[in-house]
Computed example of a mutant assay.
Amino acid sequence: MSTKELTRDPAGQPTKKPVKSGRRRASTIIVTGVLVVVGLYFIIPVYWVFVAATKTTGDLFGTFGFGFGKTFALWHNLGHVLSYDGGIFVRWFFNSILYAGVGSLLATYFAAAGGYALAKYKFRGNNTVFGLILGGVLVPGTATALPLFLLFSQLGLANTYWSVLLPSLVSPFGLFLCRIYAAATVSDALMEAARLDGAGEIRIFHTLGLRTMTPALVTVFLFQLVGIWNNYFLPLVMLADTKYYPITLGLKNWLSQVNRLPEFYELTTGGVLLSVVPLGIAMLVLQRFWRGGLTEGSVK
C-alpha cells in the first residue's frame, strides 16, 4: 500500500484512505450492462409472443414483428383458442398441469427423501448408489424415451396418462442436489436432539429435513416443473390420442396445419401466450420461499 493511500486519525494512528477510482464504477457499469443484455434476451421473446397474439393472420405477416397490428385481436384470438374443437386446448392445459404439477411435486418429494437418506445415513454401498445417480444425470431424456415406450407398451400403459406421468417422477439431478444440500445444512446435532425427544426417523425427515432443505426443494420443483411443462419428445413417443396431449404437443399439432389453414397461426400464437402464464405465476409465487428458505432450519 502506498503512503498516498494512508491518512492519520486524531490519535495519530494511520488509517486507510478510501481509494476513489473509476475502476469500481466501470465494473458496475459492465455488470449492469451484461445483466440488461441477459434480461432482454429473456424478455424480448415473451414480448414478441404477446404482440403476435394480439394480431390477425394478415397483421402477423403484414406489420412489423415487434409492433402492434392495425387490429387488436387479443381477446378474439384467446377466445378462439379456448373454444376451438370443443375446447381441446383447455384439456391440453389441464393435462400439462397434471403432468407438471403432480410430477414435479412427487419428484421433488422422492428426490428429497433419497438425497436426505444418502446424506444422513451411512450404509454399505452408499457411494455406489450415489455414483449410479450421477450417471443418471448424464443420460439425456431422449435416450431413454424409446426404451420407456417399449416397456410401457408391454405393460399396457402406453397412450395413457401414466406413460408421461411415471417417468416424470424420477429426477436424478434433484436427488443429487438434495443429497449435497442435506449434507451441508441438516444438522446432526438437531437430529440427535430430536431422537432424544422421541421423534422417529420419518418425523425427523418431515419436520426437520424438509424445512431445512426448502431452498433446494424449491429449486428442484422449479426445474422439474419447467422441464415437464416444456417436455415434447416423451409425449410425442408415448401418446397417440390427442385427448392425452400436453400443451407442447398440442401446439405443435396446430402449427403443422398452418400451411393448409392459416387461421392456425392465430391459434398457435394465442396458445403459446397462455402456455407461459402458469410458469410465470410459479416463478413469482415460489421466489419468496426460495429466498426465505435460506435461513430456515439454521442452527442458532
Rank of each mutant, 00 (worst) to 15 (best):
T3E: 15
A199Q: 13
S96K: 02
K300H: 08
E5C: 01
V170Q: 06
N127V: 12
L146K: 08
F223E: 00
G200C: 08
G101P: 06
R124G: 10
G39S: 09
F68E: 07
L132P: 02
T108W: 10
V46W: 02
E5T: 14
G209D: 01
A111I: 11
E296W: 13
N259F: 01
G115W: 00
A73G: 11
L134P: 00
L251T: 08
A240Y: 05
Q287L: 04
K55S: 09
L118T: 11
L166W: 07
A194V: 05
F68N: 09
S187P: 06
A145L: 12
A26D: 00
L234E: 09
N95P: 10
I247S: 05
V38M: 02
P215E: 04
G79Y: 06
Y47S: 04
L166Q: 09
G67V: 10
T108Q: 13
I43C: 00
F221E: 03
L222E: 01
L273Q: 01
L225D: 01
L165Y: 10
L261M: 08
L118D: 09
E192I: 02
T54N: 08
V226Q: 10
R8M: 15
G33F: 03
Y244V: 04
T207R: 15
K55C: 08
S298E: 13
T295G: 09
Q287I: 07
G79C: 05
L175W: 03
V90M: 14
R195H: 08
M283Q: 01
S2C: 05
L6A: 05
L236G: 07
S21R: 14
T185E: 12
V34P: 00
L190S: 12
V139M: 15
V170S: 09
D9I: 06
V102M: 14
G297K: 02
V19M: 04
T108R: 12
R91G: 11
V19D: 06
P235A: 03
N77K: 09
G209E: 02
S275F: 04
I88K: 15
T268W: 00
R23S: 14
K300Y: 04
L274A: 04
H76Y: 14
L210H: 05
P140L: 11
A282P: 02
W162K: 04
Y244H: 11
G12F: 09
T56R: 01
L284M: 14
V81W: 11
W290H: 03
L210D: 06
A119G: 11
T57A: 15
G114Y: 11
T57G: 08
G271M: 08
A193G: 15
P167W: 10
V226D: 01
T214F: 02
G174P: 12
Y47C: 01
R24D: 15
L217K: 05
L294C: 00
L35F: 15
M283Y: 15
Y232Q: 05
V272M: 13
R288A: 03
W92K: 09
Y41S: 00
S171M: 04
A143N: 13
A216C: 14
T212P: 00
N159I: 08
F89R: 09
Q224K: 10
T71A: 12
G69W: 05
L157E: 08
L190M: 15
G174M: 11
D188W: 03
R195D: 05
V186R: 04
S168A: 15
G39A: 09
V258C: 00
V277K: 04
I281W: 00
Y84W: 14
V51E: 07
G293V: 06
T248Q: 14
S153F: 10
R179P: 00
V276A: 06
G101R: 07
G209K: 01
